[in-house]
């Protein structure tokens, strides 16, 4: 039974991190109907920024908690800045263009950012320090859940609650919901659509950065390529839950995290990545709208 719990909690942790990335996909999709292919790269840039800040501050001999907070802050700020700039360069000029164009542009952006980090930094795996100390009160249950996992779960929950609050109860959240429903109509009633889209990219990138720092510190190494596979899996999660729906993204991520965890735990770990793809294909065949998504019929 302990093994089951271990896998269960492992899946939960995994799922929470997917959720942090999947949120960005789902929010952007909800508002501009674009799969932001470069979203995984934003997550990678967040992790890299955090690593650079941590290394510099560690060599200067700062306090560990301070380093953790500053690094996370820097990752969030820089990822948001990249997300914002990316939208302005690669997507904004293509608002009126066919969707295929925007998608190809997104792939180009992803390729560019990966190689930018590869050339400016390194192609090797870099060790990422474990930022989260082992808490003493966790001793008795440490064999089932470690402190890093606990921190990941708590952080994810806080981010989700804040995000839900933002979307449900603030002015910008209202504007976001309006834009998602009908962009032209929102513009008519005075919503600054460009601003809403920028804000969406910024929020999505910021949550991805938090995910990036947490998972990098959990796994312990990063390179320029981590964004790709994480991005794909988060996308699978977003589609599974029903793309465009925020609770759907969280649910989808958890389901994907658990299934992956149990699959690798009980069956085989060789085909872990194949599994995510097969899962995606199956969902799209049998329930293209996802678990919580509403299926919409196309209007002519």
């Amino acid at each position: 039974m302990d093994y089951f719990f271990e896998l269960f909690l492992g899946g939960l942790t995994r799922g929470s991190i997917y959720a942090l990335i999947a949120l960005g996909y789902t929010m952007v999709y909800g508002i501009v109907q674009l799969i932001n292919f470069a979203h995984g790269e934003i997550y990678m840039i967040g992790a890299f920024t955090a690593l650079i800040v941590i290394s510099v501050l560690t060599m200067l001999g700062w306090n560990q908690i301070a380093i953790l907070l500053i690094a996370a802050g820097a990752a969030v700020v820089y990822s948001s800045a990249y997300g914002y700039t990316m939208e302005k360069i690669a997507y904004k000029p293509l608002r009126q263009a066919p969707r295929l164009s925007a998608l190809i542009s997104a792939i180009g952006m992803s390729l560019f950012l990966q190689n930018y980090v590869l050339l400016a930094q390194t192609s090797d795996f870099l060790p990422f320090p474990a930022l989260i100390p082992d808490f003493e009160f966790m001793e008795p249950i440490a064999h089932i859940i470690g402190s890093p996992e606990l921190v990941i779960l708590i952080t994810t929950t806080i981010v989700m609650v804040l995000l839900t609050f933002l979307i449900k109860f603030t002015k910008i959240g209202k504007a976001m919901r309006a834009t998602a429903q009908d962009r032209d109509m929102a513009q008519l009633v005075g919503v600054d659509v460009n601003r809403v889209i920028s804000v969406t990219f910024i929020i999505g990138s910021a949550t991805a950065a938090i995910g990036g720092v947490l998972i990098a510190s959990h796994i312990g190494q990063i390179n320029f390529y981590i964004g790709f596979i994480a991005g794909i899996k988060a996308f699978v999660a977003a589609v599974l839950g029903g793309i465009g729906s925020i609770p759907g993204a969280v649910l989808g991520s958890l389901v994907l995290g658990w299934t992956e965890s149990f699959f690798t735990g009980y069956i085989s770990s060789d085909y872990e990545d194949v599994f995510a793809f097969v899962f995606l294909v199956l969902i799209l065949i049998f329930r293209p709208a996802g678990i919580l998504g509403r299926s919409t019929s196309e209007k002519v």
């Binding site: 263009a97 925007a102 190809i104 542009s105 792939i107 180009g108 952006m109 992803s110 190689n115 930018y116």
Partner: peptide
């Protein structure tokens, strides 16, 4: 040659924006 993929990415974005 190192910059090949970087250039490919740029080409994809630029082509879509300016000359689809």
């Amino acid at each position: 040659s190192e910059y090949r993929m970087l250039a490919f990415g740029t080409v994809l974005v630029m082509m879509m924006v300016f000359r689809p």
